[in-house]
């Protein structure tokens, strides 16, 4: 699989299969294509050559509704988290449930627990523009996992939060992984990767020179 913008290839000869229940870190220098790679993983971009399959289905054959249904199974945390600015953050975190027609009482209880876990328990009524960068990232992570998706893709989820909070977020992702979810985290933070390796069987992928490599265990 390869991807390029305007003729120049950013990623080439990439071949990877994420097995269900795996835990991956994605590292690489800035601009190496980590975000692009994640977008290819959830179908926001289509590979310029080769084939990407999501849950066994070729991205090229998917229509817009197929994409929507796929995204309900993939929780995504962007680097620049976007919300519906006119709704309180609690409603924003519930949004994936609402758009898929699932908002029963059990989920409301989950929401409280989840918001407490990401340290937003008392901020539920705040509007997204009033949140700090770290709070937004935590809210975005909560929104990505509320549907209990099969796969979580996170782009620098700990970029703006302190070490203690990044440990909590990592813990959340590790718990999800133990429940059988597939996790992929793009990060620069080697300390985070080391911390994770103590708790979970994590693999580290590295993008360098347009190639995706499996990094050694010697981090």
């Amino acid at each position: 699989m390869a991807y390029g913008y305007g003729g120049a290839e950013l990623l080439s000869d990439i071949s990877l299969k994420l097995s269900p229940g795996s835990f991956h870190f994605l590292t690489g220098p800035s601009g190496s294509g980590k975000t692009t790679f994640l977008k290819l993983c959830y179908g926001a971009l289509t590979a310029t050559s080769g084939e990407v399959r999501l849950f066994g289905q070729d991205v090229r054959t998917m229509n817009r509704d197929d994409h929507a249904l796929t995204r309900r199974r993939i929780g995504v945390v962007h680097q620049d988290c976007q919300f519906l600015d006119h709704l309180p953050i609690a409603d924003n975190i519930m949004l994936p449930l609402n758009v898929s027609g699932r908002d029963d009482l059990e989920d409301v209880a989950n929401l409280k627990e989840l918001m407490g876990w990401v340290g937003l328990g008392k901020r539920g009524d705040a509007y997204p523009p009033t949140l700090s960068g770290g709070e937004r990232q935590r809210a975005a992570l909560a929104r990505a996992v509320i549907m209990s998706p099969d796969v979580v893709l996170a782009d620098e989820p700990t970029g703006n939060v302190d070490w203690e909070m990044s440990q909590r977020l990592l813990q959340l992702l590790i718990e999800l992984n133990r429940m059988g979810k597939t996790i992929m985290i793009a990060t620069h933070d080697m300390n985070l990767i080391r911390a994770a390796k103590n708790n979970v069987q994590a693999r580290v992928l590295r993008i360098a020179n347009r190639k995706l490599q499996l990094a050694g265990a010697d981090l």
Binding site: H67, A68, L69, R71, V76, Q82, V99, M147
Partner: peptide, 16 residues
């Protein structure tokens, strides 16, 4: 446009 892209990201169908 931003509202629409957020909704698409969290899995909303076009009809919705």
């Amino acid at each position: 446009a931003q509202v629409i892209s957020v909704l698409r990201l969290v899995g909303a169908r076009d009809d919705y």
